[in-house]
Design a protein around this nucleic acid. Structure first.
Lengths: 248, 248
DNA sequence: GAAGGTTTTCGACTTATAGTCGATAACTAT
DNA sequence: ATAGTTATCGACTATAAGTCGAAAACCTTC
């Protein structure tokens, strides 16, 4: 890999792994994909999918590659870098840096997973290996924050959905009750979701059929930008031009 | 899968460096600390301070250690991890992963910097080395976002300050005009800043002396949490208990 | 097909937060 | 004193968000 490395210079190098925190809302709860370690260290504990970075490989590609062994890659609707852990003793076998990625799978997708792998509700985790429990916590915080100022819900919700379904998904991911009325109004106003022509079949018990919505975009967009302290832009054609009174 | 790491297995390892994006507001503009490369590659271009990760060293400590050679460490009021770049060709000399850190220096501090090192306004950068220009851009976005939902301003502002000074600092870091009235009200309500007993001496031209403010905390606190879609908590003692109508 | 049950949707209201603007306060210099 | 300058504050407006209940649109049962 090293091309013109100065031969006299001895620079340390480090093993590096990519980890994926794969979230999916199942049965109204936020779940994370973990596999059970069969051997020491942390035998029997549950770990995040991941593995070593390959030569010439980027971290994002590495995360995808290792995830592909545990879950169908096509089902991963969003992937983003979280953080890099560098504690020298995070792995008792030796030093390994780890870069964690947040990966989201839409509700309803039922990707096939290997026998040693299973979904676990994030607020009821089994014993975890290494620092993977703490990494899962960071991932959850990131997801929570982004749900409120981006359209990241597209990666958790199915292609089309009713507002009630979306409310349940948001409630599971956010960890607190969500008002359907509010959710509909806010996301519609922001242009995050839009109604389709179709309606959902009413439940067995009957009830008014719900309109099906979809996400307007299926790539990440920041929809609620941090605009604090910014003066409003006056509507064009009004007032004198070139005024900048707030900075004077 | 791999149990007790088979000793015959040759796992690749990678050089890794920590980089610091040091920001300071100077003369009403957001500046970043860069040093001028004297040798190839990118001879004459400007680079972020940083250097290789040491054995047994954590990334944050490594960033601090390398920053110490370019700026007085005591002046760094806040340090946080940004992201890890892994493009195999980001360094033409060979593969080096880089983890970037955001570092903030308070206005007014005048740390001594080496001869090859200088401050540059972020919106008027000279030619930069490697991917350091892009990393600086990411850092700036992070700073902008955090200014609006955390108390991170404490790491940009001096110990005490007038609202007008704080407005200039925010305006420089955010890149848009800021209303002093609004800034005062919002940050006070959130409990981010608080008035001291003292007042500033009026400027040469006179004018009413301004109250000096300080930040209530000098460590990072999220003050404007993302609470979208969350129902309000009813004031205690009101209504029947145990109701959860929004999730029903 | 009328009645009653269920779920969705919508409008009207209230509250909280943020931006605007001008009046007043408190200083300096002449 | 008077004029000039800057800071502070209150009152107003605008926007966003949370609450609540009525009406809509389906189901099943009688």
């Amino acid at each position: 890999m090293a091309v013109v490395l100065p031969p006299h210079r001895h620079e340390a190098c480090y093993r590096h792994e990519a980890l994926g925190v794969v979230f999916q809302v199942r049965d109204g709860r936020l779940n994370v994909l973990l596999w059970r370690r069969a051997a020491s260290p942390f035998e029997g504990a549950w770990a995040l999918p991941g593995g070593p970075l390959g030569p010439g490989e980027r971290l994002g590609a590495s995360a995808s590659r290792h995830l592909a062994t545990k879950v169908d890659l096509k089902e991963i609707a969003h992937l983003e870098q979280l953080e890099t852990r560098s504690d020298p003793v995070r792995d008792p076998r030796g030093r390994v840096l780890a870069t964690a990625y947040l990966a989201l799978v839409t509700t309803g997708a039922r990707p096939h997973v290997p026998a040693d792998t299973a979904w676990h509700p994030v607020d009821d985790l089994p014993p975890t290996a290494f620092d993977h429990g703490s990494i899962t916590g960071s991932a959850r915080e990131r997801l929570r924050a982004k749900l409120s100022y981006t359209n990241i819900g597209f990666a958790l919700a199915p292609e089309t959905f009713t507002i009630a379904q979306l409310r349940d998904i948001y409630a599971a991911a956010l960890g607190h009750p969500v008002s359907a009325t509010n959710l509909q109004r806010i996301l519609t106003r922001r242009g995050v979701i839009e109604p389709t022509e179709e309606v959902a079949r009413p439940a067995a018990a009957g009830g008014r059929p719900a309109t099906l919505y979809r996400f307007a975009a299926r790539t990440l967009v920041v929809t609620n930008p941090f605009a604090a302290f910014r003066p409003r832009i006056p509507s064009p054609g009004t007032g004198s031009e070139g005024r900048q009174p707030l900075n004077a």
